[in-house]
Design a protein around this nucleic acid. Structure first.
Lengths: 123, 123
DNA sequence: CGTCTATTCAACCTAAGGGTTGACAACGCC
DNA sequence: GGCGTTGTCAACCCTTAGGTTGAATAGACG
């Protein structure tokens, strides 16, 4: 258990199989076997994947006879989106501002360390 | 090199230290040493982290004398957001629809295996 | 040229991740 | 009650990830 929720979510989605399962589950709930069917891995492996997704809060599992239908939980996505959007906006904002600074800086003002005197008479 | 870009990005952000660096970089570019300063790990470890972030397309590094200022790239965030939003919306949509179905289902039509008749006049 | 600074490369260690097989629990069905 | 189905748990294997130390590269600078 890597402690923080965000790490768990990102980590869970870092695996293409798991992302694929999420995609599948977005369409509708499914049992473990149904989920396992498209892949070549054993059902045990799929079970493990689901555990990871569950611990990340991305899915929940109810119990229906001996079946365990898996359900996609939309809520956690919000957590991620918030994190991402925060920094994306900051980065873009910064970019925009820099862009503007460069634009409003006609042709004097050399910022790099003043190369050998250029200010009138010196030598 | 885990092949697909999305895996690389999610994987890169699965580490709290790296997320922290992203947060730091959202404020402004920084050199490796500057980035390493807050953490207890060696500068080599930080260098590795940056490599991961770079390969995920989250940062870029230019060369400035012997310094390598790191710059946050906002673009890749979009890729993630798109993926996330897609499934989040699907899941929520599905939820909404189910909710509606349940709502527009007054008091007849029992979907579970029909328990002893209830259609019409009860009592 | 020699040296200091900033950064990366290489070898190595340990722990975690994804996979497998085999055994076991829980439930529906004859 | 016994059996097939559905799913999990446990032990194990192999590869990757994050960390370390130590050496190497690349510029600035005296």
């Amino acid at each position: 258990m890597p402690a923080d929720p965000l790490s768990r979510v990102f980590s869970a989605l870092a695996d293409p199989t798991r992302r694929d399962m999420v995609a599948r589950l977005a369409v509708g709930d499914a049992t473990v076997n149904e989920l396992a069917e498209p892949y070549e891995v054993t059902v045990q492996a799929v079970s493990k994947h689901l555990k990871v997704l569950e611990q990340a809060g991305l899915v929940s599992r109810r119990s229906e006879a001996q079946r365990r239908p898996v359900h996609l939980e939309a809520e956690v996505f919000t957590l991620m989106t918030k994190w991402i959007e925060r920094y994306r906006r900051q980065a873009e904002e910064r970019y925009r501002r820099l862009d503007e600074v460069l634009r409003t800086m006609p042709d004097d003002v050399p910022q790099p360390p003043p190369p050998p005197a250029r200010t009138g008479a010196s030598t």
